[in-house]
């Protein structure tokens, strides 16, 4: 006589935190490689998720949606930092060429980083989610609001460009 099955309410927030917090912290640790950064983004992403929670229709898309918020925050953060770094570099040219201590193997790494930054947004997000978040194509598709085939194609295109960049 009573039912809750087709309830048009978002799933309980605290339950979603419990279920996803460890893997997201792991993802952020992998994406930022810095304990404090990971903690900052972790807090920010849950606050944002909480505020936008009423817009969620069901429990179905929660995980990719959370990854999407986390990924966007990481991207925003690095964009801010690059902007700040550029200002510093313009003010003090000596910092701009602070690659003097970098050895040969790291040069390739820097090259790859620049190549990732140069990827179109969708390819970059798909690539980061796949490679750093370990998401399945279905999940990436949901997070990026595209088909799984399109998500796969995005990662494939990203890989192709990055391999070319790494090789050349």
């Amino acid at each position: 006589m009573e039912s809750g099955g087709s309830f048009p309410f978002p799933p309980p927030f605290d339950e979603a935190v419990r279920r996803h917090e460890r893997e997201l912290m792991r993802y952020l640790m992998r994406a930022t490689r810095d304990r404090e950064d990971a903690l900052d983004v972790f807090q920010e992403m849950w606050l944002r998720a909480y505020r936008a929670w009423p817009t969620l229709a069901s429990a179905e898309g929660v995980r990719p949606w959370l990854y999407r918020i986390a990924t966007n925050l990481c991207l925003n953060r690095s964009r801010d930092r690059m902007r700040r770094a550029r200002v510093i570099a313009e003010d003090a040219p000596e910092f701009a060429t602070d690659n003097s201590g970098v050895n040969g193997s790291n040069e390739g790494v820097i090259h790859l980083r620049a190549a990732i930054a140069a990827l179109p947004r969708k390819q970059r997000e798909a690539f980061v989610m796949r490679k750093f978040g370990g998401l399945e194509y279905e999940e990436i598709a949901e997070a990026l609001a595209c088909s799984p085939e399109s998500a796969r194609a995005g990662v494939y295109q990203a890989l192709k460009k990055l391999r070319a960049a790494a090789g050349g």
């Binding site: 690095s78 490679k131 391999r163």
Partner: peptide, 23 residues
């Protein structure tokens, strides 16, 4: 600041990325 790089992936992650043969 100098450790974080394009795409939100810091330099050290790429060292790790190489280990996992990300490409």
């Amino acid at each position: 600041r100098h450790r974080t790089v394009a795409g939100g992936i810091p330099r050290r992650a790429f060292a790790a990325a190489d280990e996992f043969s990300i490409l």
